[in-house]
Amino acid sequence: MRVFMSLINCYRLVSILLTTIAVLGFATPKAQASLLVASNATNSVLEYDEITGAFIKTFISSGSGGLKEPLDLTFGPDGNLYVVSRATDSILKYNGTTGEFINAFVQSGSGGLKNPIDLDFGSDGNLYVSNSGLNGGFGEPAPINNSANNVLKYNGTTGEFINAFVPSGGGGLKIPTGMRFGKDGNLYVNSRDTNSVLVYDKTTGNLIKTIIPSNNGEVDVPTGLTFGEDGTLYVSSLNTHSVLKNDGTMGTFLNTFVFPGSGGLIAPIGLAFGKDGNLYIMGLKRQIKIKSSIIVKE
């Protein structure tokens, strides 16, 4: 954990989201892929060309709507962009086309929200947020008697708090970081301080299984996670500077998909597959693109 915290102190966090932006002016617009990057250091969201990596524009301007230390971001069922504003303990909503601020979708501290890290919409249309409860930055140690340390559920239309979908410490959870709903509809959550990945029932929030167990010898501080088109699970391991591949069902380790430091990767925190079938990895110091055998269908 010492390496983890020192890296966090040295570099600012950023997160990635691969999105499809329609080229206007056509009845049936052609899809043009671009990369949206949450820039923690500048309190903004930047847009880059997925193919060349060239900067396109500032999609969300610095501090818009009170944005401060953005982490994860995702598009909702309504086509708008939802961004974790970590330092304000809130989720902010922006126009998915223009980047204009709409509202504070989840108000500061709603439902006990404290130091949120990741978010995802479920098949029920509601919003789920990993709620770390940390007192400081992403690399801070877990506070004593952490009353958060859970996954919170909000109405996907109004942003109203519904419940603690995964209660504090549920299933052995300790500091939730990256999370995604799998093809089975269940919620997969990284547990930072146990170096494990837990799977929760999509309806009840009860623990189903631990797909990557603690002290597995493979993951050292799990940060981001994502699924390939075939349901394969990819997890970024921050302290080993690598990305690991798991079958996503039985918990079988398949391989080290991205080897430690490959391409200059340091401390990977964000993962996303692009429309080109490649895996994009955001590290604390450098973003790289890895060729994948998985084809992402248009």
Results as ranks from 00 to 15, higher is better:
residue 162 I to A: 04
residue 1 M to H: 01
residue 265 L to A: 05
residue 272 A to D: 15
residue 270 G to R: 03
residue 14 V to L: 08
residue 191 S to G: 12
residue 48 Y to N: 03
residue 121 F to T: 13
residue 69 E to G: 00
residue 23 V to W: 02
residue 96 G to D: 14
residue 8 I to K: 00
residue 53 G to Y: 09
residue 295 I to N: 07
residue 103 N to E: 15
residue 70 P to F: 07
residue 267 A to C: 09
residue 117 I to F: 06
residue 56 I to H: 02
residue 1 M to I: 10
residue 31 A to W: 04
residue 12 R to C: 09
residue 105 F to S: 07
residue 273 F to C: 09
residue 281 I to S: 09
residue 31 A to E: 15
residue 72 D to L: 11
residue 49 D to R: 04
residue 27 A to F: 09
residue 177 T to N: 07
residue 230 D to I: 08
residue 212 I to M: 06
residue 178 G to I: 07
residue 35 L to G: 02
residue 89 D to H: 05
residue 274 G to H: 11
residue 127 L to P: 01
residue 90 S to M: 08
residue 152 L to I: 03
residue 210 T to N: 10
residue 102 I to V: 12
residue 258 V to F: 04
residue 215 N to I: 10
residue 159 G to F: 07
residue 33 A to R: 11
residue 65 G to R: 05
residue 249 T to C: 03
residue 33 A to I: 13
residue 246 N to G: 00
residue 152 L to Y: 00
residue 77 P to W: 11
residue 155 N to G: 08
residue 194 T to N: 09
residue 8 I to M: 12
residue 131 N to R: 04
residue 191 S to V: 08
residue 236 S to L: 04
residue 124 D to C: 08
residue 270 G to V: 02
residue 10 C to E: 15
residue 98 T to Q: 09
residue 40 N to P: 01
residue 181 F to N: 06
residue 258 V to T: 11
residue 277 G to S: 08
residue 291 K to T: 13
residue 163 N to A: 10
residue 91 I to E: 02
residue 141 P to T: 07
residue 3 V to C: 00
residue 183 K to R: 10
residue 99 G to Y: 13
residue 12 R to E: 14
residue 231 G to C: 11
residue 10 C to W: 07
residue 230 D to C: 05
residue 151 V to H: 01
residue 161 F to V: 09
residue 149 N to E: 14
residue 100 E to M: 03
residue 59 F to V: 06
residue 6 S to K: 07
residue 261 G to T: 08
residue 190 N to L: 06
residue 246 N to V: 13
residue 86 R to T: 10
residue 59 F to Y: 10
residue 288 I to V: 15
residue 173 L to K: 00
residue 175 I to W: 00
residue 178 G to C: 09
residue 99 G to E: 12
residue 207 L to C: 10
residue 258 V to S: 06
residue 211 I to N: 02
residue 112 G to I: 03
residue 221 V to S: 04
residue 225 L to H: 02
residue 43 N to Q: 04
residue 97 T to Y: 06
residue 96 G to T: 09
residue 93 K to I: 10
residue 123 S to W: 08
residue 175 I to T: 07
residue 98 T to Y: 02
residue 147 S to R: 02
residue 251 G to D: 13
residue 114 K to Q: 12
residue 283 G to H: 04
residue 255 N to K: 06
residue 14 V to E: 14
residue 226 T to P: 00
residue 90 S to G: 06
residue 6 S to G: 00
residue 60 I to S: 06
residue 116 P to D: 05
residue 123 S to R: 08
residue 28 T to L: 15
residue 23 V to Q: 14
residue 22 A to F: 12
residue 198 L to Y: 01
residue 202 K to F: 12
residue 262 S to A: 14
residue 37 V to P: 00
residue 63 G to K: 11
residue 274 G to L: 15
residue 49 D to N: 12
residue 23 V to D: 15
residue 238 L to A: 11
residue 201 D to L: 08
residue 147 S to Y: 04
residue 189 V to T: 05
residue 184 D to P: 05
residue 16 I to Y: 05
residue 199 V to Y: 01
residue 247 D to N: 10
residue 114 K to P: 01
residue 218 E to A: 05
residue 209 K to I: 13
residue 199 V to L: 07
residue 159 G to N: 09
residue 274 G to D: 15
residue 204 T to D: 10
residue 9 N to K: 09
residue 214 S to N: 13
residue 251 G to N: 06
residue 86 R to L: 07
residue 217 G to F: 11
residue 168 S to H: 02
residue 34 S to M: 14
residue 246 N to S: 05
residue 253 F to I: 10
residue 88 T to M: 03
residue 118 D to A: 13
